[in-house]
Design a binder for these strands. Structure first.
Lengths: 222, 222, 222, 222
DNA sequence: CATGAATGAGAATTCATTCAT
DNA sequence: AATGAATGAATTCTCATTCAT
């Protein structure tokens, strides 16, 4: 399920002497990514590269050999972690007993596991402006799948992007309340999911024009 | 003591005879705050102080005379901008025709105006961990007021903190989609507000225990 | 007794309209000097000029009108304080009952009063390299007087400069021990004065050649 | 005889196989310390760090890699230079032919070599208020040793602290006269040492109470 | 290839001095 | 003439990236 990683060093194929990629090089690469993942999760992308090099037990030179720019390393890690995230959340959805439960379990899992990953959340924000940056696409595919399955129980007009943006928003809520009110986001999730159910039949506004007056239709009495 | 009174912007009001604050000093201070507000809105709090000094047309020394620490300037600007934000959103709420409209208009306004302000959003996230940082309190009061007014039309159990966290989350959504899908957040807002209405009577989970199984009760058919 | 201060602003004498120096200008000048003296005594010459302006209740502009350079102000203050110092120490000497007592009382007084004045001590060090900087000359004159009076009881060969350098050294000792061992310098003073008495008849080394072997003559047994 | 310097980077000797410290790194470290020592000796601790970096031929980053704070560098240099100082002065004492000569040679050497070192003298002044700052303790030990050896020829009641303070004072005298009267301090040294000899039997004043009248007893005739 | 030392362009802050009010 | 605001060069320290060993 993990996405192909194009950066993976490959054997050179044009030379007579085709030496396999050295085992320790691969090990180093893994160690760097693992350490970077931890550090990025804890501190976000503003970390000092030394911190990562130190934790992974390699020198700066090695790190920069594998990832010529800090940016490259971050992208690689994020791609990996987004994949893991998508996988774990999807797994939760698969095990659910019905489409609605799949959706709710998906959010539950997604927000419980990786939403504390600072760098993930930091970059999840870039979903829309630079969607190819990381493995976000996978997450989107999972959501697309869930949405398709749950069409009947979902409020009409809800799009995959809506669900994705909801995940982004709630992920932020998780980050924000993590230290002081660690379960507060759960209430928000309930509220939002309620609003997603099929018993709400009001049209969602088109993206193009923010129709201010549409609110009147939301009046409870109406 | 035949001192000719010069043009005085402000006299001190106490007994201490203090010189009126110089007009150009006030102007500079305003210019600094204004420039800082723009820059902070655009780039967040990680800006270079020189950028602000440059934009406001003053030297570094002047900036540091008014705000001895970068932090001081940021706090001042944030306080001001949070206030403006709260005021504008509250104004929208006041003009609304009923409690529900007040709530929806509040969110609408709040998310339209200042949610693009990077530094505001950056610090809004600190609401929970360091709530006294800025004029966030004002915003909270406005929300508290709205909640009280709207009790009848609000889903039972919804707290002011829920509404505040919702604002934080949606504010983030606005930021995230601002460049590419500028009105997308509006759909999310509709969804969330739907979930807030009184016709949802399921209990919201207590913060203490994330009750995973409570989701079953959300099944549309149930 | 106070030394003439050439910087003192004087009436202009070439114009028809000879306006007296404004009273408040004089008052300001005094206030600045007084404040500067306090601050310089407490913190040495590294103080911020603002501190002085603030304490004297005048603006920076006024301060700089009277003393175009920080250096100028310091020089003025030092000249004044060196004078005061010389006066007070000389007074102690005058009241003494004999030449030796005059000398000891002089040191006692000199080290008790002004030796805590940071800037004085800081600049006392410049006595030799730039002797005209401040009112040190007066102090030197007092010492010269004392030395002349005490010739009979003084070890032969002791010069005024020796006595002055001794004062510099002990002044430093006072500064150094002021906080933790406030009277320790007194013991050192006793020791040094003992060495100055006429019963020591060994020749002091000429300045030109540091005669290392001269020490043998100091052996107590000899 | 040279004291061990624990800061010196060494090859690890334990089981952890650590890379030997790179030769050029050591060279740089030495160069920095050496340059810093020169600059600190000449200008005191108020130097610009860039001056040191420039002189040692390394970039700012390198300097800060070795010494994360300016303070750290200064401390290291001072420790080294105090040690050197103590060693050289003690060496002179060891070679002396008797206890009194040891004392005099010690002072002679101590004042000849390092007393021109601005930063050393600057920090030597802190002996009393913050005695642990640097390797001052070593110097104190040497003096303690000398005092013990010379008890018979020393005026009764003279303490190690007295001798230390004398060194501080004379060190200052050296600094003060270094440029214009480079050997003048030598005369002062003679005077002070005379006052230290056993043939002076007057009691030194206790630190607690400065007994002004004790001076009468010092009258040469008495 | 791995290592970690070196680099140097910033970034925040201070302070003597000047200048508009 | 007085005021205190404005100036900006100087200073300490950081960190992504390069390079010698």
């Amino acid at each position: 399920m993990a996405v192909a990683e194009p950066e993976e060093p490959k054997r050179s194929e044009g030379t007579t002497r085709r030496r396999a990629v050295r085992a320790d090089a691969i090990r180093n690469r893994e160690a760097i990514i693992e350490a970077a993942s931890e550090v990025l999760a804890a501190q976000g992308t503003a970390v000092d590269v030394r911190e990562i090099a130190g934790r992974s037990g390699v020198g700066m030179g090695t790190l920069y050999r594998h990832f010529p720019k800090k940016e490259d390393l971050i992208r690689t890690v994020l791609r990996r972690d987004f994949s893991k995230w998508a996988d774990s959340a999807r797994q939760a959805a698969i095990e659910a007993r019905d489409p609605w439960a799949a959706l709710t379990d998906f959010y539950q899992q997604a927000l419980t596991g990786y939403a504390r990953h600072s760098a993930i959340m930091e970059n999840f924000a870039l979903t829309w402006s630079a969607p190819d940056v990381a493995g976000i696409q996978q997450l989107r595919l999972v959501i697309e799948e869930l949405r398709a399955r749950a069409t009947d129980v979902l409020r009409p007009g809800v799009t995959t992007d809506d669900l994705l943006l909801l995940l982004v928003s709630l992920g932020h809520a998780v980050q924000v309340t993590d230290e002081c009110r660690p379960h507060m986001w759960n209430r928000l999730l309930h509220i939002c999911l309620s609003g997603l159910r099929a018993d709400h039949r009001e049209l969602l506004p088109a993206e193009a024009a923010p129709d201010t007056n549409s609110w009147t239709r939301l009046l409870p009495g109406s």
